[in-house]
Design a protein around this nucleic acid. Structure first.
Lengths: 201, 201
DNA sequence: TGTACATCAGTGAACGCGCGTTCACTGATGTAC
DNA sequence: TGTACATCAGTGAACGCGCGTTCACTGATGTAC
């Protein structure tokens, strides 16, 4: 048993894979993923630039894993917010605010989650697939809970779900881009949700 | 008078600035702007890699000009579409489809228009500012035309405008990311617009 | 408890690459005479 | 019409840089005895 702490130990880090992902996530606070270099991430994690190759085949693999990590946190934020609300409309509103709030606080992480070049949506990796499914289910549940259950099977439900996903996603982009203040999100969502759009019989 | 054509003349190109912008725009069909190098653009325009410095101070200046060029085309697409429709609701729908359609056909150009790192929305350059103003006016006109003119000054109009901008923008992102087929856009917009959301009172 | 050793996580030098930018230059152009 | 010349758009060699990736290596660790 040596007196050195974990962070000082140069060899046999034991948890370098996660440390690299954490370091990369923190770097996303300062730069888009496209501007992250493998060497920079290694530097931030306190190891040599060759060390990451023991855990990731190449830079792309590392970024994909970071993307999954971001998705995990993104989903968690939405789940927490929805769990805290009860009424159907408030649940949908809470989901929207959590969605946009995450994008607002971690824009580069948000962008990485939706980076189609790095993570083509048709072919998610094994770790991301269940997270994506859970996220889609969460949104679907929030939307369908707003609509009458005894109505028709509702072919337009998909269309409305897409529209609402688009709205929330777009508001996130506008906030990220500085075109809309975070304060403007809730009023915008209420303007859409509060007008009877979603609960006509 | 020489027999060489414009495209063969190595010296005194005469229109290199625009040729570089055109070349860059075409390259955007294959790569995001962040992956465009000055040398690549020069190569595509058929000049040496130092030639662009006669027209642009640095790579960023070139990209900013390309962004303005993209914005010009983006605005044009929307204006054309709106001009072709007459009824208020159809005009808004046409605008939305043109907006998303441009993003679908030129995703990297669309992304560059909204690149906040390169073009902070608070401080547009002299060439972009009027285009941005025109685009905002176009959207505002389409939205307000849907609402009763004799109602209150409508503080919620801004919120609804933001929500609709968000919807269209988000649908564009979802299409670009492969999360929604282009075919799904019109139904989604109709699901939102067709339910009396926008013409109560 | 002490010792020899196999493992393998992490090192650091080295590689080739394309990049952004600079700079002295060259040669086609149009103009003044 | 012909000639000398100033302009300046575009050239190409050169620079230093950080990158991704490879590779032989080293030395801390835990285990077998």
């Amino acid at each position: 048993m040596s007196s050195s702490t974990d962070s000082e130990r140069p060899y046999h880090h034991g948890n370098l894979r996660q440390a690299l992902l954490d370091a990369a996530f923190e770097l996303l606070a300062t730069r888009p993923a496209a501007q992250l270099s493998l060497r920079e991430v290694a530097r931030a994690a306190g190891v040599s630039h060759a060390a990451p190759y023991h855990y990731f085949a190449d830079r792309d693999s590392l970024l994909k894993a970071v993307s999954t990590e971001c998705l995990r946190r993104f989903l968690g934020a939405q789940q927490d917010a929805v769990a805290r609300a009860t009424a159907p409309r408030e649940r949908l509103l809470a989901l929207g605010l959590a969605y946009v709030g995450f994008a607002h606080q971690q824009p580069n992480a948000f962008a990485l989650v939706f980076d189609a070049q790095l993570c083509p949506p048709g072919q998610p990796n094994a770790e991301s697939a269940p997270l994506i499914a859970a996220n889609e289910a969460l949104l679907r549940d929030c939307v369908t809970a707003l609509r009458p259950t005894d109505g028709p099977p509702d072919a337009s439900g998909d269309a409305l779900g897409a529209a609402l996903w688009g709205t929330v996603h777009g508001l996130a982009q506008l906030v990220m881009g500085g075109h809309l203040p975070m304060d403007g999100v809730a009023p915008a969502l209420r303007a859409l949700l509060g007008q009877g759009t979603l609960d006509r019989a």
